[in-house]
């Protein structure tokens, strides 16, 4: 009901009233401007992706002779198959998936548990930890490369180098102050009374976390997931440093490497494969997570 009334208010008080829209000058002038703007945005946003898709199935000779042609002479679907099998894009693809899933998991687990501890459990020293977390946000990632690399080569307590192991990617991914801060902010805004009600109902901290806080946090879990997967998918520098074995490297590292030895059409097909997952993933996640369905009816008012 609230949503409906809000919408009616927004149309009622729009900059240009329905009466104005009926005047031909406004209609054609402004209407035309809107269409142009929309077309411009679509071309800028969607254009490169569609161009890549077109090039991926264009025979290499065509791309070389007529780079700007809108319609190629025949489609070379073979490019895709060749990229997947002969150039081993398939293997790199699954490497990337494994890295993304692991990084996502470690980020979600650490962000939610840390956010829960800092926001809900609130030990006395939470303020100090929170301040330390915030300061790490101000340190550029590049500065941390060398210390982090040393840490991975000589991890404390374990005495076994993580180089060439996916743990070298997964573990540092979890150490994201940004995620913790974002999740903590969200938890801060959840109604305390619900936690108190759960405590009186007999829930300990673990129950409170699993049965109450996490289910109420779907929107923020969606946001962190999207960021985590995208960041992991496109990360180049860190995987290049810690994964030396080509068979274990992700697409982002392998693609520049194979470019010189690969036929242009096949390479473009590989690029298409590499970019499809984040796009599809984002569309799916956005639908199920970003809708703020978490809090309906918890509290009055």
């Amino acid at each position: 009901m609230i949503r409906r009334s809000r919408r009616s208010v927004s149309t009622g008080h729009a900059l240009i009233s329905p009466a104005d829209w009926r005047r031909p000058g406004v209609r054609w002038g402004l209407g035309g401007a809107q269409v142009l703007l929309l077309v411009g945005l679509v071309v800028i946003g969607l254009g490169p992706l569609l161009w890549l898709a077109k090039s991926a199935i264009t025979p290499t000779l065509d791309t070389l002779s007529h780079p700007m042609a809108l319609f190629p002479h025949g489609a070379a679907w073979n490019n895709l198959r060749e990229a997947w099998t002969n150039v081993h894009v398939g293997r790199y693809f699954w490497n990337t998936v494994a890295l993304a899933i692991g990084s996502w998991l470690s980020q979600i687990v650490i962000a939610t548990t840390a956010g829960f501890a800092l926001s809900v459990l609130r030990p006395k020293y939470a303020a100090v930890i929170n301040a330390l977390l915030l300061t790490t946000l101000f340190v550029p990632a590049v500065v941390l490369l060398v210390p982090l690399y040393i840490e991975i080569v000589h991890p404390p307590f374990i005495h076994h180098s993580f180089i060439d192991s996916y743990w070298a990617i997964w573990l540092p991914a979890g150490a994201s102050a940004f995620n913790v801060v974002v999740v903590k902010r969200f938890f801060d805004n959840l109604p305390r009374e619900i936690f108190e009600a759960a405590r009186i109902d007999g829930a300990g901290p673990f129950r409170l976390f699993v049965a109450v806080v996490l289910p109420m946090s779907r929107p923020i879990l969606g946001v962190v997931s999207v960021f985590a997967v995208l960041a992991s998918w496109k990360d180049f520098l860190w995987p290049l440093l810690v994964l030396t074995n080509p068979d274990r490297q992700p697409l982002s590292v392998r693609l520049p490497n194979i470019q010189s030895q690969t036929e242009l059409g096949v390479f473009l097909a590989a690029l298409l494969i590499a970019s499809l997952v984040p796009i599809i993933g984002f569309l799916v996640f956005q639908r199920s997570f970003l809708r703020g369905t978490g809090l309906g009816g918890a509290l009055k008012g």
């Binding site: 619900i194 009600a197 759960a198 109902d201 829930a203 109450v212 109420m216 978490g294 309906g296 009816g297």
Partner: peptide
């Protein structure tokens, strides 16, 4: 047992689950 001013129901649970949560625990 406490009844809160703003009810503090668990938004992601059905009424039955809300009622039964404390008993289950």
């Amino acid at each position: 047992a406490m009844v809160f001013q703003n009810y503090a129901l668990y938004p992601h649970m059905t009424v039955a689950a809300n009622l039964g949560f404390g008993l289950k625990l």
